[in-house]
């Protein structure tokens, strides 16, 4: 069976997901969070000496046992298809390849952050990061 790990994201929304937040790409360019494109992440990772983009496919989304405000999203990460589950607030946005920001509850994301967002679904391929030369 593939290795499994689990990550818990802190129970608050980071400020950089609020619409209008200024994000610096690896080449120094500044963009608003709502204007980011898939290519911005890919190009930034290419410049980075430590980080590389991995594809993380959503395999399962279920409610958290801890709180109704949380969801557990299970990803299959990278070429090794390692199973990683992440417990996040339902409004926590992930960036889906070719699509943009998506969350388990896009209505809440739009309400709380004003960040345009679509519904995160099983089969979506999200952008995630791993270390280069990790072995």
């Amino acid at each position: 069976p593939p290795p499994t790990s689990s990550t818990v994201v802190p129970p608050s929304l980071p400020p950089y997901f609020i619409k209008g937040s200024i994000i610096q790409l690896a080449d120094g360019e500044l963009k608003r969070v709502e204007d980011l494109k898939t290519e911005d992440f890919i190009q930034s990772a290419e410049i980075s000496s430590e980080l590389k983009i991995d594809s993380s496919t959503v395999e399962r989304i279920e409610g958290s046992h801890t709180s109704p405000n949380f969801a557990v999203v299970q990803f299959s990460v990278g070429e090794h298809r390692a199973q990683v589950s992440v417990e996040v607030l339902v409004e926590y946005p992930f960036f889906v390849f070719g699509q943009g920001w998506s969350s388990c509850c896009p209505d809440r994301t739009t309400q709380l952050l004003e960040l345009p967002c679509t519904k995160l679904s099983v089969g979506d391929v999200c952008i995630s990061l791993t270390l280069k030369n990790l072995r």
Binding site: P2, I23, D40, F41, T130
Partner: peptide
């Protein structure tokens, strides 16, 4: 105005490598 690095927006999912 605060400026945030691009990689802070991306979840860091580093699975244990089995090989």
């Amino acid at each position: 105005v605060p400026v945030f690095p691009w990689h802070s927006l991306v979840p860091f999912l580093a699975p244990t490598q089995s090989d």
